[in-house]
Write a protein that binds this DNA or RNA. Sequence first.
DNA 1: ATAATTCATCGTAATATTGCGATTTATATT
DNA 2: AATATAAATCGCAATATTACGATGAATTAT
Lengths: 109, 109
Amino acid sequence: MGVTKTEIFTEQQNRIADLAKAFAHPARVAILQLIIARKACVCGDLVDELELAQATVSQHLKELKRIGIIQGEINPPRVCYCINPPVWEEARQAFGAIFESFEAVTCCN
Amino acid sequence: MGVTKTEIFTEQQNRIADLAKAFAHPARVAILQLIIARKACVCGDLVDELELAQATVSQHLKELKRIGIIQGEINPPRVCYCINPPVWEEARQAFGAIFESFEAVTCCN
DNA sequence: ATAATTCATCGTAATATTGCGATTTATATT
DNA sequence: AATATAAATCGCAATATTACGATGAATTAT
């Protein structure tokens, strides 16, 4: 039904899925990379760098904010975005744990 | 339009987005965790473990196969799934690189 | 005050995803 | 051959996502 049955999964599984969504669209990957590369926070420069309309970029930023992986500081008339370190660390830990959980033991090889 | 403009992003950005999609739905996270936990490959046991219809599980498996992160071995009448080590390693590297690229230097704190 | 800017949000359109029942395919068993 | 089992695929419905033009809100500059 296009509606994910979140209630049948664990909190952890739902959170991992959410964190993964931050990277599950190339525009968001590009936005995160730009924010990181510029160390200083980026704002509407993203619109210039990406071939996407301002409204589209704004929507991706909103999604990244919802997940919590970035934060925006209003610095009128601009808004300055940067990585939110605690959530970034949370994501690193979560994915690190998953990747470590598998030790190349497969049956079909 | 619901259609991602993949052509305006780099190969790498598109690939990372694809790899992230493997983890961007709680059902797929659960499936990967089950496959890993059972070391031996899981097949339709997934349907028993998850409260999802067989058709739904099959579709998630198809997506994971498309990405390449799992592989299925036909072992009639069952199909045995397991992690595809090279792609798993690719994902680990890709996310590792991203997470390392940020060193807690933010402007808004 | 007025105009210019930056960005968020609204509304809309198009496409994608999620989920499942029903069916099909493929093989094993009888 | 007929049946049973396992899994993929089809077709549909419902919801989500992606994208953008237009508009609105907030602030700065004139």
